[in-house]
Simulated assay, not measured.
Amino acid sequence: MEFKTNYITPDIKLSVFEDKLFKTEVLFEHHLLVWFISGETKIIQAGTSYLFTAGDIFLIPRNQVVTIINYPKNGLPHKAVAMHLTVDRLRNYYAKLPVKPVAYVTDKVYQFKNHPLLHSCLASLVPYFDMQEDFPEEIASMKILEAITILRTIDKDVDGILANFDTPGKIDLVKFMESHFMYNLPLEKFGYMTGRSLSTFNRDFRKTFSATPQKWLTQKRLEFAHYQIAEHKKKPVEVYLEAGFEDLSHFSFAFKKHFGYIPTTLVKAR
């Protein structure tokens, strides 16, 4: 079963997922503010993982790539309200304030637990998802501006994220790929995140790693999975998603082809 998503505006949505698991890799074009109503989400980002449950509120900055794994929990579906904080809306907001944009980049997800101000703002949206008529844009704008104002009130450093409108510049390829290889993204996205066109990314990659991106990525993911199973005592079913594989059978096939034995051989050897 896929997500059921109900938009009251293009920037405000309610998502519901009732199956066992949903996994995706996402490169966010806009900042995303999320409040969990029920369920559980694991977010993996450049070697760091976060676990969010019912009541948690967090902000994922734009131009960040993350792996998201959603689960129902305690008999309840995975259910969340999400709000996009778009660049255009933030430009208009900050144009009226004496805040200078700063060149500030972060690879972290901002956690706000169940902050009462943010909870009140996001929870107030839930009744609107049952409306039959169109949701007034004026109210939507007010709610988003309220959320931005609350974020700035409870975290004085958030301006460094929200008021930064830069696009990714050309960055070190080795450092980026070593910390982002587990993301199953199109090569165009890897190019964008490293400040390169697809052709430039492919050329620089071959020159840097002496291999094609596809071959290098597969090898890195398998080596990562091998390490997690052998050294951290994890089971294959706990590893394959985090390593960037879509299903367990494909992971086992690729693992055996590369190492000469199936992942469970490592488990038995322990």
Results as ranks from 00 to 15, higher is better:
H258F: 15
L90E: 01
F209Y: 05
R152K: 15
K156I: 12
L173G: 01
F190K: 02
K20Y: 09
F181I: 03
T167A: 08
R89N: 08
R62A: 08
Y7E: 05
L51F: 13
F251H: 03
L32S: 05
K13R: 09
L117Q: 07
Q132E: 15
E238M: 12
P77G: 00
V126P: 01
S49Y: 10
G55W: 00
F36S: 09
I68Q: 11
P236D: 09
E242T: 15
K4L: 11
K4T: 07
F201C: 05
I8H: 04
E146G: 10
K96T: 11
F112G: 06
V237A: 14
T106P: 08
P263T: 02
V81K: 04
P98H: 01
T48L: 15
M182C: 15
D204S: 04
K268F: 12
V109N: 01
A163D: 02
W35N: 10
N92Q: 08
P213Q: 04
K256Q: 14
K143D: 02
P61T: 03
L151C: 09
L59W: 07
D56F: 12
G191Q: 00
A225Q: 05
T153Y: 12
K100V: 08
I37M: 09
V34D: 01
F129H: 03
I148G: 03
V105A: 11
Y93L: 06
H250G: 12
L33N: 00
A54V: 00
L248E: 15
F36Y: 00
T53C: 13
K79P: 04
L173F: 04
S38C: 06
L33A: 02
V16Q: 10
I57R: 07
H84K: 11
V102G: 06
V102L: 13
K175M: 10
M193K: 03
E223V: 13
I8R: 03
K156M: 12
K156H: 12
S210I: 13
N74L: 08
H226M: 14
P72C: 05
L90T: 01
P98K: 03
T200W: 05
P72L: 07
M177G: 02
L122E: 01
N6A: 15
F58Y: 13
D88S: 04
D134M: 11
G195A: 03
T264R: 13
I161W: 09
M131D: 05
A123I: 11
T106N: 07
I12P: 04
F245M: 11
K215R: 14
A80K: 04
G244S: 08
P77M: 05
T208Y: 05
F201I: 03
Y240Q: 01
E188W: 10
I148V: 13
S249C: 14
Y183Q: 00
S15H: 01
A82P: 02
G169N: 00
L33I: 04
S38M: 08
